[in-house]
Each structure stands twice: as structure tokens, then as C-alpha cells.
Design a protein around this nucleic acid. Sequence first.
DNA 1: GGGACAAAATGGTCCGACCACACAGGGTGT
DNA 2: ACACCCTGTGTGGTCGGACCATTTTGTCCC
Lengths: 251, 251
Amino acid sequence: MSAEWRPVRQSRTHELVLERIEERVLAGELKAGDRLPPERELAPVLGVSRSALREALRVLETIGVLVSQAGRGPDAGARVVRNPDDALGRLLRLHFALGSYSLADVLEARVVLERSSFETAAAHASVEDLDEAEALLARMQEPDVGVDDFNDLDTRFHVAIARSSGNQLTSTLTSAVRESVRPLILQALEAAEDWPATTAALNKQHTELLRLVRAGKGAKAADLVEKHIRGFHGTLVDENAPDDRADGAGR
Amino acid sequence: MSAEWRPVRQSRTHELVLERIEERVLAGELKAGDRLPPERELAPVLGVSRSALREALRVLETIGVLVSQAGRGPDAGARVVRNPDDALGRLLRLHFALGSYSLADVLEARVVLERSSFETAAAHASVEDLDEAEALLARMQEPDVGVDDFNDLDTRFHVAIARSSGNQLTSTLTSAVRESVRPLILQALEAAEDWPATTAALNKQHTELLRLVRAGKGAKAADLVEKHIRGFHGTLVDENAPDDRADGAGR
DNA sequence: GGGACAAAATGGTCCGACCACACAGGGTGT
DNA sequence: ACACCCTGTGTGGTCGGACCATTTTGTCCC
């Protein structure tokens, strides 16, 4: 019976340091904007070497909770920040590359997240947020936009809608999930036979999506975004799934 | 116009090291199960110090892509693994504590993710997976189960359903999102006036959920799980949201 | 006053040493 | 032969100190 035995994984100084710092964050004693003491001061206070402390700080930096700035003055040192997007993006990207989950999984997650985003955005989004999305759309429609720029703008459009829905978490997840398949999307876009036609088709859907959101038609927007995602993203699944299975690790 | 100026943030050796390793992962040259060369060999090959290399490895360990094992033998050294759950859990937990997103955001995300999980599970879940969920449910129904154990089992039940739906990404996200509000949930459970009645009520819903999934009634299961989450989780929002707004940063 | 130069504070990097741990392999006693 | 122990060796983990790079803060001299 009894839950599986979890190896105790004792000590590891930098993990203990991490716990101390994490405690203070969880307890609300360390808030966004706060500065940590300099490494050379903090290390002896915690009773560890600077290296061990630095490894803990590095961990916090990778999860987007800290940024470090060398030099002198008010902006120098380690500051607590809130930047989960990059961290989540890298995490999902690497795990996707390692096969922790499949492209089909990503597609479903996107559909679920973005249906919700668009539905909520249609109900609550502010005009300013939607104007921002509109500006992105305008730049996407410029005729000479490259694959790279187009994809970035496309991502930012979807994320902008998610953000406009007021849900920061969904917005972050949307951004990260999308980021995790960025290489594949770029590859697919570059392989497009008729680039102008492809962008035109996608932009048409984007325009319609924004129109529906502005009109407050959440249900319709949700249905269209699902179609939008499945339409383009779905071709990726069809093209890559067999290959992945063939050359890749069998799970 | 031109996109915002992004500070160039040059060098930082450990980031360059990270890029090199990341490249190999993205390119599929490093797969789950592979071992990295020993630090003392790899560092000079990359042309960096052991410290810089170690910081990069620490980052990879943080995001659940590496584990390190000291000692000698086949299991020693740094191995590539796929364990996104803990990493994502810590990331979301800290960012939630920092106020990167609100409890209401978490609730909505859970609803969206789990509706999808239950709907898909009802269609595709294998009998074995559901038996596992059933076993968890049985342990949850033992009369003397404590708050901590109950919550763990509850989480594992929801995650088991997510996993049974076949979508690893959704499963990971469900686990992590849930984990991020774990402290709050525990606190709420401990404050429950009538503990046996609370667990009984939750378990009744769990039992019904599992029955619906087994019966293949995805839509009903989705509706019920939404009700289930909003029912309990919703009380958290009501209790905490005003406090959060009062003392916390206003976004 | 202003500009150039020095000082200080901070993170980033490197090096060398040692510690802790876990297996490998041989030696030794039965 | 076999079992046991003891030492060797390879691995990550930690430490301390030194130095570098960058940024701000002074300060001195013109």
C-alpha cells in the first residue's frame, strides 16, 4: 500500500538555498521589484559558498523570477521580477523536442486555451487591447513581410487576444505552448508553396476573428479560432506525425 | 515604429553553453536517456570553466531535462530525462506567489484544461488508467485520511484522468496549475468546518465523474468537472480575491 | 563648471583544491 | 570457491580566492 518510496535526495546545498529563497517568496516577503543582497554578502549569511548561492540564483533566473544586473547603482544586483513567459517557453520547447509530448497534444492544448481566450476576450476585452491586436494584424498584412516576422506577429496577435481576455495565466500558457512548436511552424511556413496566398488566407481569418471579438460574438470567435488552429496547425500534424514515429524514439 | 529595442545582453558564458546543449537537444542529437560527458571533460571541450558549465547544467536540471547523479557506474553523471511536471509546478507556484496571475486565472485555466481532459478521457481512456483513478478514489474515501493526503490524492486523481486522456501536455499543465495553488487549497481544506462532510461531498462528485467517464459520457463529465472545480475552487476565489487585491500589487 | 580619470560595487568567470558518494576490483580470510 | 572488506577511482558537489567587465559614483584638475 503506502505511496511509492521517493528517494530522499538529501542535501545539495544549492537546493537548500533555493528553499530558503522560495520560502520568502511564498511568504510574500520577497515581492516583485525587491532586490536581493549582493552575492558576497548573502552567501556567508546563508552559510554557503558563493558558487552554491549562485547556482540557486541561476535557477530562479531561469524560471523568470530573478534578473541580475552587474555594475553599480540602483539597478544593479539581483532583482525579483515576474517574467514567466520566456521560462515557460524554453521549458516547453525543450520538452517538446525531447518528445515529452506530441504535436497533436500541442494542437489540442492550443485549441482549448485559445477557444477560452477568444470567448472571454469577446466579452471583456478593452478597446485598447484590441487596437493593439489590430496594429499587429496591419503589420502582418504588409506584402513584403518575411516568414520570421510573420510568425512572430502571428504569435503576438494570438497572445494579445489572450492577454486582452484578462487572464494572465492563459496568456502565458498560450505564448509558451505556441513557442514550443516555433521551429516546426517556421519550417512549415518556409515550405509553403504560395507564400502570398498562405498569408492572405491566414490574415483573412485573423481579420474575421478580430471582428467577431469586437462584435462580442464569443461563441463564433471560439469556433473560428478552433478551425483556424486546426486548419493550419493540423497540416503540421499530418506531415510530421508519421515522420516522428518513424525516425524518432517510440515514445 | 520599429519593434522595441531589446537590450543585447551579450555573452554570459553559461548562456552560450546552454545554447550549445539546447541546440543538440533541438536537433535530436541528445535524447532522453543519453548521458553527457563528465563535467571535467566537457568544460574544456566547450572552452569554458567548470563553473560556467555547471550553471548551464543547473538550468537544464531546473527545467526537468537533466538529472545528475554522483558516484560511479552506469547511472552516474548527467542524464537527459523528461520530467517537466516538477519544473512547471515550481515555476507556476512561484509566479503565482509573486502575483504574476490571479487565483481567478488559475480557476479558469483549470476549468478549461480539465473539461478537455474529461471529455477526451471519456472517449479514449483505457480501462487500466481508469482503474488507477478508481484506486486513488478508494484511498480518498478512507475515513481517517488527513488533509495533506487527501489533497495529494485529489490532485493525482485529476491528473490521472488527464493522463488517461492521452494528452501528455494537458496532463502536465493540469498537474502544474493545480500545484501552483496547493498552499491555498491546503489552507482552505484545513479551515473546513466539517471535514468528513467536505470529503464526502467531494468524493461523491469524484465517483460520479469517474462513472461518467467510464460510461463514455464526455459532455456530462465536462460539465460536472466544471461544476466540481468552480464549486470548491470558487470558494477560494471569493475568500482570497478581496485580500489579494487589498494587500497585493494591483497587477 | 565641466570633463577626464580614478574608485567602488556588483555580477561573471576562472582555477585549483578538497569533499562525499558509489561502484569496481582486488585482496584476504574462511 | 566463496564471501567479505578495503582501497582505488570516477563522478558530481562545494569551497575559497583571485581576477575580469561593467556601471555608477566620486573627485580632481583645468
